[in-house]
Design a protein around this nucleic acid. Structure first.
Lengths: 210, 210
DNA sequence: GCTTATTCATACCGCTTAGTATGTAACAGT
DNA sequence: ACTGTTACATACTAAGCGGTATGAATAAGC
């Protein structure tokens, strides 16, 4: 049966998701419009009706897929009302699982889409850069907030620079994901993520008020 | 006047260096042969005489430029005969300076070329992946060696997993460079590198035998 | 029921891409 | 001085790229 009924929202969403997957694997520059169309079975008319350019499509991918994904994986788990340091440690443990759930085994080996976009395009396109920057800032603020709570509650040493520490945690996480991706082997990848999580847990423990 | 004398080695080297700079900025896929030729003033005949394909050129860039650069910046500074933990801490401090020296201010904002290649191409080309992997392994072994020396000398706790810890250090460093690159602002970039170095120095201190 | 706007499908366009084929000048060996 | 090889330069090709122009079918508004 031919799909006679139109569904513009579904069309747009399908294009968006296909674009995300293609760009996650091949990068922005390595992604071709034709490949997205092949994957979705759509045509150029559909795509360029909903998105004026390839760049606009990438912006939408960042706004509507990557940012919510980062929030879901790395920020939501912070909401537990545990001891702030325990909350961060739990987040480290749970997020690997969330990553595999969200991205699938295959997606895990493609690394963090946010970092991929940022690495490839930060020096090349201001629109992508500002979007990546906004997401990173949001992530950083979320973690810094937990640390500040910890300081208020007297759990975390008061000389800890929350923003700076949050940046360090994110950098380490992203670095571990990158190195895991580099191996292109699931076992090694998980090993690195887990190893990094343990080191950071240890580091977090060191932030406790004596 | 006209360059009548030939110098094939210099030609090859010039192409290699131009390819490195282009790929460092635009990535492998985003780099066009024509741009390399424009930059060097060479022609296609020259390039394809020395390198059979774009991919082969990238391999040469990794083998002959990126790997020596990583060794120069991150491994050579480990050779000091200090206390192993101090050596690692010194390395962290000195390497930022080495990076700016080696890459220049502009190059610093382009991040780590090794990580860039790995991020973009690991899932796409086996030849690039194995090369990146070899470089990362070499880097990791270098750091792990220092830690193992530390254990032998009784300076580092004997329960420290050297390889795993080395991986964590590299991941954090690469992550910090990535996040610095993302900002595209020199001041913020240096701030992140320095911040990361301090956190890692603190972490290293925690590995000391009590 | 008629009109207008939306949502696509098809065909096309100019440009760039990596790579090749061919020819020629420079060098090396003898 | 002659010969064969190396090192290029020029011109070209086929394919793929992002994007556009046009038209038709569907849906929405009145």
């Amino acid at each position: 049966m031919n799909k006679r009924t139109r569904n513009p929202k579904a069309t747009k969403q399908a294009l968006l998701e296909a674009a995300f997957e293609e760009m996650h694997k091949h990068g922005f520059q390595g992604t071709s419009i034709s490949q997205i169309l092949l994957r979705t079975g759509m045509t150029k008319g559909a795509l360029f009706h909903h998105y004026p350019s390839k760049l606009a499509l990438a912006y939408a991918v960042l706004d509507e897929i990557v940012e919510p994904m980062i929030v879901e994986i790395w920020l939501i788990p912070l909401d537990s009302r545990d001891d702030p340091i325990v909350a961060l440690q739990m987040m480290l443990r749970s997020s690997v699982k969330r990553m595999t759930d969200q991205l699938g085994r295959n997606g895990l080996l493609l690394g963090c889409p946010l970092n991929h976009f940022a690495q490839e395009m930060s020096p090349l396109d201001e629109g992508i850069r500002t979007r990546c920057n906004r997401i990173f800032s949001r992530w950083q603020s979320g973690i810094a907030g937990v640390l500040l709570d910890g300081i208020d509650e007297g759990v975390v040493r008061s000389d800890v620079d929350a923003e700076n520490t949050a940046m360090f945690l994110i950098a380490s996480i992203e670095g571990a994901i990158s190195m895991g991706k580099q191996t292109q082997r699931l076992a090694r990848c998980l090993e690195m993520l887990q190893g990094c999580a343990e080191h950071l847990s240890l580091y977090l423990e060191g932030l406790r008020k004596a």
